[in-house]
Amino acid sequence: MEIDIDYELDAVDRRVRQTEERALARLDQVGPITGQASDGAVGVEVRPGGQLSQVQLTPAALAGGAEQLAARIMALAEQATRRAGAAMHQALAPVLGPDGEKHLTSLGYEPIDHDVEDVADTVFESPLGPPRRPRR
């Protein structure tokens, strides 16, 4: 049996283009992740993929001193970055399939178990669902 290499290459090229189109369409649905401390003093925005794009502070954020402020910013940014990675995973995993899902995980884009995520002092707005309210 002879293989028509041109036909096979065209078929692979079509599948790659279709996958790319589906992935781009799903990525268009992923917006920035915003996190805000429950007291509203500190807020962050992270782009899909995890790049910190904005930090917002109120005068009240400065009351606890530089170390506390830095720790709050870092904690918010870390949580928002995890959520941004989860949004990427959620958007791309259905398109890329099981092997693609492994690659997403290796890049740090992992799903979040919302039941165990520590958001005690945080409210998030993201494409992963409705804003979370802090636990009391």
Rank of each mutant, 00 (worst) to 15 (best):
I5D: 08
R15G: 02
T81E: 13
A84E: 00
Q36F: 01
G35C: 05
A37P: 07
V55M: 06
Q36C: 11
Y7C: 05
A66T: 08
L57A: 09
R82M: 12
D39Y: 06
E2L: 14
D28N: 07
G97N: 03
V55L: 06
D13A: 13
P131Y: 06
G31L: 05
A37V: 11
R133P: 06
D99S: 11
E20H: 13
Q51W: 14
K102A: 13
D39Q: 04
R17V: 10
H89F: 09
R132G: 06
D115H: 13
E110K: 15
P94V: 03
L9K: 15
D10V: 09
R22A: 12
S106M: 14
G31T: 12
I33A: 11
I5K: 13
V116Q: 13
G43P: 11
I3T: 10
R17E: 10
I73A: 00
R22P: 07
V30F: 00
R17L: 09
R72I: 13
R22L: 14
Q18M: 15
A80S: 02
G43M: 06
P94Q: 04
T19S: 10
Q29L: 09
M1E: 12
R14W: 09
I112N: 07
D113L: 11
L62V: 12
L96E: 01
L104G: 04
P127G: 03
S106L: 15
G49H: 03
A71Q: 13
V44R: 02
P130Q: 07
A75L: 09
Q51K: 15
L69P: 10
D4L: 09
M74N: 15
R47L: 13
V123A: 12
L107V: 04
A77W: 11
A11F: 11
I112D: 02
M88Y: 03
D6S: 05
L69H: 07
V12F: 15
P98C: 07
D39W: 13
E101P: 14
T58Y: 01
G35M: 08
M1L: 14
Q56P: 07
L107A: 14
G49I: 10
L57E: 05
V44A: 05
E8W: 11
A91L: 00
V16E: 07
L27G: 01
Q18C: 08
A77C: 11
A66L: 12
L104S: 04
A80R: 01
R72P: 15
A61E: 09
A77I: 10
E101N: 10
L128H: 02
R22V: 00
A84K: 00
A91E: 00
E78D: 08
P59R: 02
P127H: 02
F124V: 06
L96F: 09
E101W: 12
P94W: 04
G50I: 11
A93Y: 05
S38T: 11
A63R: 14
E101C: 05
A91V: 00
L92F: 08
I3F: 12
V30L: 04
P48N: 01
E20K: 15
V46P: 05
R15M: 09
